[in-house]
């Protein structure tokens, strides 16, 4: 279930990206944060508490919205625009090591 709610600008073209291996629709001009939180209620889990996080400052200061793409690169979701064909992971990819404390 989505965390954020769209209130305007619905006329933009749709963009397909992959979230945790599943195809999803976003809108051109969405940040990854917007694209993902329109689908689900979190972006990542804190490495120390294992608790869900969904970003906090939206201006590149808090560093609480970093996610991974399929190549394992880190992306700051609040300041990266979604692109067609992007593949991002908010849950641990099958091939990568579980971060510390994220097992709960």
């Amino acid at each position: 279930m989505s965390l954020i709610k769209r209130v305007a600008e619905a006329q933009r073209p749709a963009v397909t990206f992959h979230l945790n291996g599943q195809p999803c629709q976003a809108l051109a001009g969405d940040t990854l944060l917007t694209a993902i939180l329109s689908q689900q209620s979190y972006l990542r889990r804190n490495e120390f508490s294992g608790q869900p996080r969904a970003g906090f400052c939206l201006m590149g200061a808090c560093q609480d919205c970093w996610i991974k793409d399929a190549q394992g690169r880190s992306l700051r979701a609040c300041s990266t625009l979604v692109e067609a064909g992007m593949s991002v992971w908010t849950d641990t990819q099958p091939s990568t090591v579980q971060p510390q404390g994220a097992a709960s």
């Binding site: 939180l37 209620s41 979190y42 869900p52 996080r53 969904a54 906090f56 939206l58 201006m59 808090c62």
Partner: peptide, 11 residues
Amino acid sequence: WTLPGVYTLGA
């Protein structure tokens, strides 16, 4: 304050 749904005013 770390729960999803809690943001700064600026955010």
